[in-house]
Design a protein around this nucleic acid. Structure first.
Lengths: 339, 339
DNA sequence: TTGTACGCGTTATCAG
DNA sequence: CTGATAACGCGTACAA
């Protein structure tokens, strides 16, 4: 392994000068500079990043905690974070939780052990106190998700409003019996979407039937099972609001398996606007969070924390869009109930 | 920041003893051991991983280079690598190339700069010489992909055979005009699948028409466009072999948009067996590489390299499966041509 | 069983 | 503009 002192020797200068040349940190006479660069080239010298990081006490690496990397919703946000990081010359380390709760705490060690400079968590499925405690000492931003009375820099959308709005869209299309398919109620994100759904029903004087609210895995399989359970209730249902597109896709699959047409027999709307939503049949009406912007704002926020600059605001609430496609049956108004 | 010497002071011992306790590297009297652990607890001491890594010259971190993390094919392999890494107490760093060529070389720096102990690349879209040169000095395993006369530890399946077999499946179903949708011919992986396709046609004395072979992005969009181009040829085509499920899905979408039925009017088969393939309509007949095993074998191989143990074999060729579902129209034999 | 002291490879400080 | 040298925090001979 060739070190900086090997280079120094070869170039006939001190290690300090080599370091100066390599980091452009101070003026060096062009002649000696060339000599150093030549030696670097000749010896194929690569600076030892570990030693540098140890000396400077920064790794220029940020860890991103992702609930489930195989869900394209997250990989899209991740993409935007990566691009942003690249711009500022930071590396990204990806931590996949595979949807298991409380794994964040494991990754928090990384920052306490100085192996990364900051954390962006797309998950908040964790002991809140621990998280806030770590956040007091280290740069952390939570994006997409959040907790109650949350005292950590945070980037999100208003899930209550979004859920209410898309539910109202169904109501305006004439639906009065709308079921809700969702996931882990331990996540405030899902509770907010549930609350938006309830509040839309209430606002329009529609009956609320909690049997029409099902909880399951946030996966195609999960959506399929929940939808099947709903059908087995044999209650009148004319529309479904799924709290995630992945579950919506599973629900549509279940409806088709049961011989029902979407949206003619039952309308379905989702949340997230993942890639396949536009390709699915029928294409999915859904809520589109500003994925690119979420990533950018989260990284810029983290950057400020890492640079110990003051945050202008703790919480950024970004705008979402309602994307109307086929699955809500926008173009038809006659409704009939399944049983 | 509390260091090991803070702990030593608090516990009334030397730093060496603290180190011994923390790493269980040597016998320590239970009494002093307790004192040390108490001090660690009291001061909330976390060892500085950087310093440790610098001292031991190992990071226990492996970087995995992924062509496109939003393609679930790769996230499934990744999952298996992660599980394996966890077992051996290694961390995983994910490098997403976003399908751009020659980005691997950027990540090769990571290993040359000692920031990771090894590399698993799920891509081989790069200057071969550079790769082999780096591989001579550092632990690298290439999985899923490979190059010609490849002198790097490698885990893969026999793509030629798999492509030939699934093409033959179409031929046995009565198809004589089979088109091929594929991607970057610069990748040997795709050239091999192409060769398997050609060899199946040849074996059965079917005419080979290179106009029926289309190249494009390995994405839903890409498959859609290629299929559209194929239809515009106005040539008789009764089946499609897509070199990836993502493209197959796009092709089916295009066929449906053109008012054609799959598999009744045109049959489609894919490659990879990604998650949605089983949920798509029609569900996809495809080749299933042993994703879990690929990850495991790759990691175990890398482990040997990192431990400087001898490799029993350079190249592992694993078994694949042909998964028969709806999109090939297995249950019907009458064929008719479009146009 | 424990402590002292050195070195891992780099950058930063201080003289010159 | 350049060089000598002291850290950074830890693990480990070696000596006790």
């Amino acid at each position: 392994m060739t070190t900086i002192s090997d280079v120094a020797k070869a170039a006939g200068v001190s290690t300090a000068t080599v370091s100066r040349v390599l980091s452009n940190s101070a003026a060096v006479k062009p002649l000696t500079r060339d000599a150093v660069l030549k030696a670097v080239e000749a010896l194929d010298y690569k600076p030892n990043a570990l030693a540098r990081q140890m000396r400077t006490q920064e790794t220029r690496t940020v860890i991103v905690i992702v609930p489930d990397i195989s869900n394209t919703f997250f990989s899209e946000i991740l993409f935007s974070i990566e691009r942003c990081a690249q711009k500022y010359d930071y590396q990204i380390l990806i931590a996949d939780m595979h949807n298991q709760p409380n794994i964040e705490s494991y990754y928090f060690q990384a920052i306490q052990q100085r192996t990364v400079d900051g954390i962006i968590s797309l998950s908040a499925n964790v002991a809140q106190k621990l998280m806030e405690q770590v956040a007091e000492e280290y740069p952390i931003v939570v994006a997409n998700q959040y907790l109650e009375n949350f005292n950590i820099p945070n980037v999100t959308i208003n899930n209550i409003n979004a859920a209410e709005e898309i539910t109202e869209h169904l109501i305006k299309l004439g639906h009065t019996h709308i079921a809700h398919i969702t996931s882990q109620p331990s996540l405030l994100l899902y509770r907010d979407r549930f609350n938006g759904y309830i509040s839309a029903l209430a606002k329009h004087g529609l009956p609320i039937d909690l049997e029409l609210v099902r909880y399951g895995d946030s996966s195609i399989e999960g959506g399929y099972k929940q939808m099947t359970a709903l059908l087995e209730l044999n209650k009148p249902i004319s529309a479904i609001f799924a709290a995630g597109d992945v579950m919506a896709v599973g629900a549509i699959k279940a409806l088709k398996s049961a011989g029902l047409r979407v949206p003619e027999d039952i309308a379905v709307v989702g949340f997230d606007d993942i890639e396949i939503s536009g390709f699915w049949e029928p294409s999915l009406t859904t809520v589109r969070p500003p994925k690119r912007q979420i990533g950018e704002v989260a990284f810029e926020k983290l950057l400020k924390l890492m640079r110990k600059q003051p945050l202008t605001q703790m919480k950024d609430i970004l705008d979402y869009e309602i994307v109307i496609r086929e699955s809500c049956g926008y173009h038809q108004n006659e409704r009939r109930f399944v049983t």
